[in-house]
Design a protein around this nucleic acid. Structure first.
Length: 428
RNA sequence: GGAUGGGUGGCCGAGUGGUUGAAGGCGCUGGUCUUGAAAACCAGUUUACGGGAAACCGUAACGAGGGUUCGAAUCCCUCCCCAUCCGCCA
């Protein structure tokens, strides 16, 4: 969330930003509530101070009528204070509810627009979309021929949107994880495996809405836990309520986790197969940085995502996400869209990774700060996240781009040693 | 899951319900001394929120949340976490 004071001092700027983001918020009401809250808080604190003073006198006073009178006075002051404090809390809660739905500010270069149609293509990857001289299959058809998935059994056992990976698909999942993890370790990331569940307060801090009609999140009944939709949640939550020394930053982590999404209301041909599923595995990058490092870190994350898909031999394009499509926490976001030959009519680009600079938005909600040695006070860190690889969508891109006329699929060179073969062939 | 013992400032560690935001020590920062360093000595050393141009002032915080009381680190309740032992288990 944004800084209260900043919002109140920059009402018009925040209102304009909300318009660009497609979010309707009554910023002026927030300012009004804040003003009332401050006045009430001063009143409550003053009453409390008076009560404290009186209580101290009681300690020194002798037993008797005088002491009883002091007690009564202090009691009354505290009652008044409690009443004022309750009003402060109510005002703060109301103001906070508004503040929490205000999205982050937007990078001045981010394209302005209400949805993904306004996304700006920045560049393309090293590889061109392949040209096939045979009928192109999509990953579902390829998977049938190669016996790589079982969607029916997934549906039977866990419901629509779940699936089994079989044979080379299962091995590819592990190979992709290992390839990416090795690459990131080489780049100085700390590799981690995170919990697949997190407390709702952490989800909210990262910017997810754990419950409610529009939620994308599975929650666990009778607990305050939810299944995570991305390791961004657990990696960001790792340092909640903690203060870094500035020389610990930047801190680069990557985490392997399963990701669970209800995908409420998402159906259709473009979501067939592995594209939009309720569970998948992902290796996520995450960084805590000083404020003046985060823009550079975003470019670095994007560069790594490009490197990974270039090395996998997959054609893609990079888009600068439009303001209306940024989500709440992001200040700027780049998506990689991989070429998927089996998608749509003759192939389409489909999102495979995404990297965001969330500046202080998540850090303020999660209370993640840093301190500079020798300086008084603390500041909020900047947080960034990026997909290194989302297995299900990477599998689509690998299978569909590397298919061959005989129905086999070439294994990307970097995965061959990990998979122990260079081609996936139909089973006999 | 059961039993017991614990959770206090960057760390260690005191703390009879009443000038305790919190003794003492360590560490850290600055100073004195010294050719320099060490030692010694002196001083300073939490954070959040609010007010103020600033100096600074106010309020809150002793695992978390409630309760008792004029007043709680201190008493009561609930929960969380840690340690050890027992049980169970991949």
């Amino acid at each position: 969330m944004l800084d209260r004071k900043f919002v109140i001092e920059n009402i018009e700027l925040v209102e304009e930003n909300c318009r660009h983001r497609g979010v309707t918020v009554d910023v002026r009401k927030l300012a009004d509530l804040e003003q009332q809250r401050r006045a009430k808080q001063i009143e409550a604190e003053d009453l409390n101070r008076q009560a404290n003073e009186k209580s101290k006198l009681i300690g020194k006073a002798a037993e008797g009528a005088e002491r009883e009178a002091l007690k009564e006075g202090a009691r009354q002051l505290r009652e008044q204070k409690e009443q004022a404090a309750a009003e402060v809390d109510a005002l703060a809660a109301e103001a906070d509810a508004i503040l929490r739905v205000i999205p982050n500010l937007s990078h001045p270069a981010a394209p302005i627009g209400v949805d993904d149609k306004a996304n700006l293509e920045l560049r393309k990857g090293k590889h061109q979309p392949p040209v096939f001289d045979f009928p192109v299959l999509d990953h579902v058809q390829l998977g049938e021929r190669l016996d790589l998935f079982d969607f029916e059994a997934g549906g039977k056992v866990a419901g629509h949107g779940f699936y089994y990976l079989k044979n080379e698909a299962a091995q590819l999942e592990l190979a992709l994880q290992q390839y990416v993890l090795n690459l990131l370790v080489g780049e100085g990331f700390t590799p981690t495996i995170t919990p697949d569940l997190a407390r709702n307060e952490i989800l909210q801090g990262i910017g997810f809405i754990p419950r409610g009609p529009e939620t994308q999140i599975y929650s666990v009944a009778d607990t305050d836990l939810s299944l995570i939709a991305t390791a961004e949640i657990t990696l960001g939550g790792w340092y909640a309520k903690e203060t870094f020394d500035s020389d610990q930053l930047p801190l680069k982590l990557c985490g392997v986790s399963h990701c669970y999404r209800t995908e409420a209301g998402a159906h259709g041909a473009a979501t067939r197969g592995l594209y939009r599923v309720h569970q998948f595995t992902k290796v996520e990058m995450f960084a805590f940085t000083l404020p003046d490092e985060s823009e550079e870190m975003l470019e670095y994350f994007c560069g790594l995502e490009c490197r990974i898909f270039d090395e996998l031999g997959i054609p893609y394009r990079v888009v600068d996400t439009a303001t209306g499509d940024l989500g709440g926490p992001a200040y700027r976001k780049y998506d990689l869209e991989a070429w998927m030959p089996g998608r749509g009519d003759g192939g389409e680009y489909g999102e495979v990774t995404s990297t965001s600079n969330c500046t202080e938005y998540q850090a303020r909600r999660l209370a993640i700060r840093y301190r500079i040695k020798g300086e008084k006070g603390t500041h909020f860190v900047h947080t960034l996240n990026g997909t290194a690889v989302a297995i299900s969508r990477a599998l689509i891109a690998i299978l569909e781009n590397n298919q061959r006329a005989d129905g086999s699929v070439a294994v990307p060179e970097v995965l061959q040693p990990l998979l122990g073969k260079d081609v996936i062939e139909p089973r006999k």
